[in-house]
Amino acid sequence: MTLLRTHNLSAFYGDFQALFGIDVAVEQDETVAIIGANGAGKTTLLRAIAGALATAPETVLLDGEPIGHKTPHEIVRLGIAMVPEGRRLFSSLSVEENLLLGTHSNRAGPWNLRRVYELFPRLHELRRLPATSLSGGQQQMAAVGRALMSNPRLLLCDELSLGLAPIVIRDIYQCLGAITAEGTTVVLVEQDINRALDASTRFYCLQEGRLALSAPTKNFDRAALTAAYFGM
């Protein structure tokens, strides 16, 4: 069944239109990748879904209910959590406090401090440290953990691999399996196309704010993707 659907979604930064009539659908329990070049509108799409950008009510539907007009904190309460680009941990909070912040939405579910520490054992050792004293990879784990603490049905991950070493990226992507196993649906935004395609079942490719291609990640036409990605 369809968990999230955008319908003719447009988004603006002031007078600048960043998205033009995007239609995407995310089914329960699948992992969907959104790829595209720099400035294609990937992050904007996630921000619009998360409520950080104003959109018309009917353009974003969760379980068929319009949520486009809701504020970010309302949307977290409905079960959509975001791992923002660049991690965005709170610098004056410790690692554990950052994780606990995810509980402000009061959602019940499989994830709690113990489970997050099981998923990322390193965080348990570092829990008392200021979040910003962690390495990039550890910060990314904390950011994922913080989002999980709200027990989301849908997890939006923005550029998990940004600025991280390949081995660290591999570790983090391995954990995605454990997350989806709990019944969490995942949307990945990535510039690293191969990484995103490996981890997902379907992908959408954006180009200059428009949907250029959508296909399953198995047996798709590479040439079509190249064309959609680069706009050729």
């Binding site: 998360a50 950080a52 504020t71 970010p72 904190h73 977290v76 309460r77 959590a81 975001m82 923002p84 965005r88 709170f90 610098s91 004056s92 909070l93 406090e97 606990l100 912040l101 995810g102 509980t103 402000h104 939405s105 913080r146 989002a147 709200s150």
Partner: peptide, 24 residues
Amino acid sequence: TGVGRAFRAVSDDANTAELMGIDN
């Protein structure tokens, strides 16, 4: 306290705090 944690988070970065479910 949890409220205090939220106060500090909002003070650090209000936009991200809202994305984490805090009603600023």
